[in-house]
Structure formats: C-alpha cells, structure tokens
C-alpha cells in the first residue's frame, strides 16, 4: 500500500508538472492520474433547491472530476449562484428531499466577483484568514508570490487596484490547497487587458495545483478559452453540455461555431429585424438568498 502511494507520487512528478510551491501532500493523487476511472470530487444527484414556491434548481445531476475545469454559463436568475453557494457550502443543505445526493469535497475555496477582502486586515492576513498553524505567514507569502503580489504583503486592501484585489482573492483561495475551486464571475469587474492576464494566471495556477474548478461566467469566449467542459444552466436545469478537447491556445478556430451554439442556449442570438426588444432583454429577477441565514443564531 505504501509503495503504491509513493509510486503514484513519483508518477505525479513524472508528468512534468511544475513543482508546486504549496504543500504537496494535500494535493489529491487523482489529479495526477487523469480523470478517467476516478471518484468525482463533486457529485450531485437530483439536487433540488427551492425558496418558497420557486424551484431555483430542479433535479440537477452533475459530476466534476478531480482537476477538471468546468465553466457554468447561464442567464441571471438561471440558478448559477445558487448552485455555486451549494458547492461552496455557504447555504445550509436540506437533506430531506428524496433521492437527492450531494457530495462536495472537504476543502473548497471561493473567488467572488467582488474580491471580498476584509478591509481591516492587511493583504497577507486576508490570505491567511482562517488558516491554522505556525507557518501561516510563510504560506500566505508563498501564495502571494505565486500571484505576483509579494511586494504588497503589508498593504491595506482598499489601496489595491481591482486586478490586485482579485489576485489576492485568488491567493487566498489557493493557499488552502482546495480540491474544488469555485469562481463566481471573478473577472467580470476587471478591464479587458487585466482580464486576459488573469485568465493566463488562473490557467497557470490551475495547471500547477490541479484543483477541480467551477467557473461561473456570463462570458462565452472566456468559458471556451479556459475550460475542459462547459455547462449551460437555464431555469435550474442543465440544458447544454460541451466538452472541449482542443488544447488551450488553439481554440480560436473552433470558437465561431461553438460560440453561436452556446449563445443560442442563452437566448442571446442576434436581434432580428422584427424582434421585440423588451423580450430579447427579458431576464428573470434575482431571487434574494434566504435573508434569515446570516451570522446570527
């Protein structure tokens, strides 16, 4: 058994991945062996979530393999954020729904659209938030070095630029060695050039640490550029699923067709000459999250 585990470890390095700067012992072995035949890190079966009489998500089934990069597209009100909150373990789960199965990995981390740094903690303390142990400062430093912010360790978050704040949030997520990295439109607030750079950075960090990733986004091009698999969510159901095998960087060619196809599921095709503009833009209102669930008992 020991020999088997260590053999896997050696094989992992044999793959030629850049040596992770993080603790290696917590990285799931499966991440090095590819996704075939391994246990998924996320497993949802017949997952249903409702607020009042509204079914936000209905009978949804989803597997995410270790190290897989999944993008989730959907209009506002499609249930994306609810699904993300469930996978993040932020929402309380209702176990009483028959036939429902929810399995999420124990180590998860979220990067939100607004970086959500605590303004009263210096950058490295934000990254170290909730970490236990003696070496949290050096772990935070290592993570910040990976996102190129080792010169901003002692800065106050409110003095960071949008891109710096988002990279700090990325470091804060990765310092936990998550098996599942959840990103909720993390690039939406960045300017176009910064967004491209952060895309590259995310891919690099992902290829080093190999967490399973679920990226929630509105941006079809972003999803095509980054992911192994794209899901389209509409009215709480998965209405389309596309797997992309073309290596990243060679995807410009396939973009046009796939783009049109995915956009058609999102109801954002071209506006026809006789279209009703109000209907074209009609989105569902956002349903507020259970306002009772805050920090109070």
């Amino acid at each position: 058994m020991n020999a088997f585990v260590s053999a896997l470890g050696v094989a992992g390095f044999g793959f030629g991945l850049a040596r992770p700067l993080f603790r290696t012992e917590d990285i799931p072995q499966a991440a090095f062996t590819g996704s075939a035949g391994t246990q998924p890190v996320v497993r949802l079966r017949n997952f249903t979530r409702r607020f009042g009489d509204n079914d936000i998500i209905k009978d949804l089934s989803l597997d995410i393999a270790p190290g897989e990069f999944v993008s989730l597209l959907g209009r506002s009100g499609s249930g994306k954020t609810t699904l993300l909150r469930t996978l993040a373990g932020i929402d309380q789960l209702h176990a009483d729904i028959a036939g429902q199965e929810i399995r999420i990995p124990p180590t998860r981390a979220v990067v939100f659209q607004d970086a959500r740094l605590l303004p009263w903690k210096r950058v490295w303390r934000n990254v170290a938030l909730g970490l236990k142990g003696l070496d949290i400062r050096s772990r935070a430093e290592t993570a910040l070095r990976e996102v190129g912010l080792d010169h901003r360790l002692e800065a106050w978050p409110l003095t960071l630029s949008g891109g710096e704040a988002q990279r700090t949030a990325l470091a804060r997520a990765l310092v936990r060695d998550p098996q599942l990295l959840l990103m909720d439109e993390p690039f939406a607030a960045l300017d176009a050039l910064t967004r491209l750079r952060v895309h590259d950075l995310v891919l690099r960090l992902w290829s080093v640490h190999r967490p399973a990733v679920m990226l929630v986004t509105h941006d079809v091009d972003e999803a095509i550029a980054l992911s192994d698999r794209i899901l389209v969510l509409d009215q709480g159901r998965i209405v389309a699923e596309e797997r992309i095998d073309t290596p990243r960087g060679q995807r410009l060619a396939l973009t046009a067709d796939l783009r049109e196809k995915l956009l058609s599921f999102l109801g954002t095709g071209r506006i026809g000459d006789d279209a009703d503009i109000a209907e074209v833009f009609a989105d569902k209102p956002n349903i507020p999250f259970s306002p009772d669930e805050d920090f109070r008992a």
Binding site: A88, I90, L129, F295
Partner: peptide, 17 residues
C-alpha cells in the same frame, strides 16, 4: 453580509466570523 459569506466559505466558525 457578503464578507460574512466569504468568511463562512473559508470554513470560519461562527465565533471566528
């Protein structure tokens, strides 16, 4: 509340939040 949410997503206990 969004900051509290974020802290909860990183596994902070209620007291730590």
């Amino acid at each position: 509340v969004r900051l509290v949410d974020a802290a909860r997503s990183f596994g902070l206990s209620r007291l730590e939040q």
